[in-house]
Write a protein that binds this DNA or RNA. Structure first.
Length: 263
DNA sequence: AGGTATGTTAATTG
DNA sequence: GCAATTAACATACC
């Protein structure tokens, strides 16, 4: 599930409960989730040290280690951060568990596509991963640049982490729905002859992502009028009642309303 | 048993 | 070089 709002929520959870404690045991239960770092090196970087603050870029969460360095987390398809009391059993599929005083911090990942690593330099980390600007920090001018630079469709552009970081399948559909844009449309055509469309895209990206964060990234708590409750071919559109359609983009399914997302 | 899943990356094709 | 497509990764769920 983890797109920008999910990662933001994980970061806030961690910031609220896992900072400033002295780290005890570093229990790597499954080394497969370690990203180019050995158990030894991870333990040396963490044990006896403290987490100082969090920072998010797109779908990546970075956690500064007070004594130096940053922990990097990416959540793949199924990973999340769990913080609980030290005496409560970690959830199933906890892959890395840090002891933090009375608490324990878990990186949990059923499918093991998530990754946890270390970096000394967040900027270099972002550059190495070829990440574009974070979707929430992109202003109108930034959007024009992103769209102008792409020859792909607007839906592919939104999901391309190298162009703009943080938006995946679910939220690209939601944003385009509220911005009333046809996902198949060429990104560049927006800058060329649809300034109002560019403005809607900017505005709705902000609105949708912020609102999703407020809802704790839990779809059940998001507004009833949102498309994500109707992600199935033939479901009624929450705005016009027309049929939601499926579009296949890059091997996954995207949903939109041909009735209200004009070409 | 087979299809599906909100992500990333490499290989392939046009 | 760019964009689109496909497969692979790994695993639980329906």
């Amino acid at each position: 599930m983890p797109e920008l709002p999910d990662v933001e929520v994980f970061g806030r959870r961690l910031a609220r409960r896992a900072l400033h404690h002295r780290i005890g045991d570093v229990d790597v239960r499954d080394a497969q989730v370690l990203d180019h770092v050995s158990r030894r090196r991870l333990e040396a970087a963490l044990r006896g040290h403290r987490l100082a603050r969090t920072r998010r870029h797109g779908k990546h969460l970075l956690v500064e280690i007070a004594e130096g360095g940053w922990l990097t987390l990416h959540f793949g398809m199924t990973a999340y951060v769990d913080v609980g009391a030290a005496d409560v059993e970690p959830p199933p599929h906890a892959r890395v568990v840090l002891a933090l005083g009375g608490e324990r911090l878990c990186f949990v990942d059923q499918r093991r596509l998530g990754r946890l690593g270390l970096t000394d330099d967040p900027e270099a980390f972002i550059a190495d991963h070829d990440l574009g600007p974070d979707a929430l920090r992109l202003d109108l001018r930034g959007w024009r640049e992103v769209l102008r630079g792409s020859r792909a469709t607007v839906v592919a552009t939104l999901m391309d982490q190298r162009r703009v970081a943080g938006i995946g399948n679910l939220y690209s559909d939601e944003i385009l729905f509220h911005a009333r844009l046809d996902p198949r449309r060429a990104a560049r055509s927006l800058v060329e002859d649809d300034e109002p469309g560019v403005r809607r895209l900017h505005r709705q990206t902000q609105r949708v992502l912020r609102r999703a964060i407020e809802a704790g990234a839990d779809p059940a708590r998001m507004p009833r009028g949102w498309l994500l409750h109707r992600r199935e071919d033939g479901q009624p559109c929450p705005r016009c009642g027309g049929e939601v359609a499926r579009l296949d983009v890059g091997g996954r399914h995207s949903y939109w309303c041909p009735g209200c997302q004009a070409a």
